[in-house]
Computed example of a mutant assay.
Amino acid sequence: MASLRRNKTDKNDSFKLALLGATQLSEIKNHCNKQSTSPYDSLRILSLRYRQLIKCRTRIINFLRSGLEITFPELNQIFKNAYAVLALQMFRMYCHPDFLVGLTLKEMTNRVYQAVNKRIHKDVIQNYCAQVWLTAKNSYPAVPADSLEVEIISEYCDEIENYNKEIAYIQNKLIKTAASLDNFKFISSIPGAGQLNSALLLGFAGDISRFDNYKQLNVFLGLDLNRYQSGKY
């Protein structure tokens, strides 16, 4: 299937099998024995690692959101990105509405502002704190504030934070590895492409100059329509 689009028919199968012994046997042997030292190999490994980390982080985020549905469900609506710095800190400090009893909005804002090491503008923090502070008055959690679920939510936040650090490290390594490739410079110069997306594209597709046209690249990436016969005809 190396030179075919994903159009698997009995006719194409028969034709390629006939050519296999006549013209492609030596090519296959050479390909199997070839040891590549291309920078694309490292890029592919990093891209796979990046995808794995994203999946792992998403799994923990789903667990976290399930826990919040029990302790303080409104937080899931307020914070769309559960892996953001401010969201994680808010979950740690106020994942139960009872933690806000007797606390003024100003006091809450100052506490969160100090906790995030002033990396986020205070106006942004105050806006989110106001939303949490107001919704806490009418929230009805399914568990008390001393529930073990609160401790588990804090552990989820720590796990997500660790994934954030590792993902950021892999992102930087991906971009640095891809920066040495001419194709990366061309692709990342396209408006909207971005350096990370360009590096991931080259990591999964390899050297795109080996494709004769965009249709072959689409097929390789699985973006082309498939035709697959059972072999009964």
Results as ranks from 00 to 15, higher is better:
residue 1 M to P: 09
residue 2 A to P: 15
residue 4 L to G: 09
residue 6 R to A: 14
residue 6 R to G: 06
residue 7 N to T: 15
residue 9 T to P: 00
residue 11 K to G: 00
residue 16 K to A: 12
residue 16 K to N: 14
residue 17 L to T: 06
residue 20 L to A: 09
residue 23 T to S: 11
residue 26 S to R: 03
residue 29 K to A: 10
residue 29 K to I: 11
residue 31 H to E: 15
residue 32 C to H: 05
residue 33 N to T: 08
residue 33 N to D: 13
residue 34 K to N: 11
residue 34 K to Q: 12
residue 36 S to H: 08
residue 37 T to G: 07
residue 38 S to P: 06
residue 38 S to V: 06
residue 39 P to W: 02
residue 39 P to D: 07
residue 39 P to Y: 02
residue 40 Y to T: 04
residue 43 L to C: 02
residue 44 R to L: 13
residue 44 R to C: 14
residue 44 R to P: 03
residue 45 I to M: 13
residue 47 S to M: 10
residue 47 S to H: 11
residue 48 L to N: 14
residue 49 R to L: 14
residue 50 Y to C: 07
residue 51 R to E: 14
residue 52 Q to E: 13
residue 54 I to V: 15
residue 60 I to Q: 01
residue 64 L to N: 00
residue 64 L to K: 00
residue 65 R to M: 03
residue 66 S to V: 04
residue 69 E to W: 03
residue 70 I to V: 09
residue 70 I to C: 07
residue 74 E to V: 02
residue 78 I to K: 00
residue 84 A to W: 05
residue 85 V to K: 09
residue 86 L to Y: 01
residue 86 L to P: 04
residue 87 A to K: 04
residue 88 L to V: 03
residue 88 L to P: 01
residue 90 M to G: 00
residue 90 M to A: 04
residue 90 M to E: 02
residue 92 R to C: 11
residue 92 R to M: 12
residue 93 M to G: 07
residue 94 Y to H: 06
residue 96 H to N: 11
residue 96 H to F: 04
residue 97 P to M: 03
residue 97 P to T: 07
residue 98 D to S: 12
residue 102 G to A: 02
residue 106 K to G: 01
residue 107 E to D: 06
residue 107 E to F: 11
residue 107 E to A: 15
residue 110 N to C: 10
residue 112 V to D: 01
residue 112 V to N: 02
residue 116 V to R: 02
residue 121 H to D: 12
residue 122 K to E: 06
residue 123 D to H: 08
residue 124 V to L: 05
residue 126 Q to P: 01
residue 127 N to V: 09
residue 129 C to P: 05
residue 130 A to F: 02
residue 131 Q to I: 05
residue 132 V to D: 00
residue 134 L to W: 05
residue 134 L to C: 03
residue 135 T to Q: 13
residue 135 T to A: 10
residue 135 T to C: 07
residue 136 A to Y: 01
residue 137 K to R: 12
residue 138 N to V: 09
residue 142 A to H: 02
residue 144 P to S: 05
residue 146 D to K: 03
residue 148 L to C: 09
residue 151 E to T: 12
residue 152 I to N: 05
residue 154 S to D: 14
residue 154 S to T: 11
residue 154 S to G: 04
residue 155 E to K: 08
residue 160 I to M: 04
residue 162 N to W: 12
residue 163 Y to N: 12
residue 165 K to D: 13
residue 165 K to Q: 09
residue 166 E to Q: 14
residue 167 I to R: 00
residue 169 Y to Q: 14
residue 169 Y to K: 13
residue 170 I to Q: 05
residue 171 Q to F: 06
residue 172 N to E: 15
residue 172 N to D: 12
residue 175 I to T: 00
residue 176 K to W: 02
residue 182 D to S: 15
residue 183 N to H: 08
residue 184 F to H: 01
residue 185 K to L: 15
residue 185 K to A: 13
residue 187 I to A: 00
residue 189 S to I: 10
residue 190 I to C: 09
residue 191 P to A: 03
residue 194 G to K: 07
residue 194 G to C: 07
residue 195 Q to N: 14
residue 195 Q to D: 11
residue 196 L to V: 14
residue 201 L to V: 10
residue 202 L to Y: 04
residue 205 A to S: 10
residue 206 G to V: 08
residue 207 D to H: 10
residue 208 I to C: 10
residue 209 S to Y: 05
residue 209 S to W: 04
residue 211 F to I: 04
residue 211 F to A: 03
residue 215 K to S: 14
residue 215 K to F: 06
residue 219 V to I: 13
residue 219 V to F: 02
residue 223 L to A: 02
residue 227 R to F: 03
residue 232 K to D: 09
residue 233 Y to C: 10
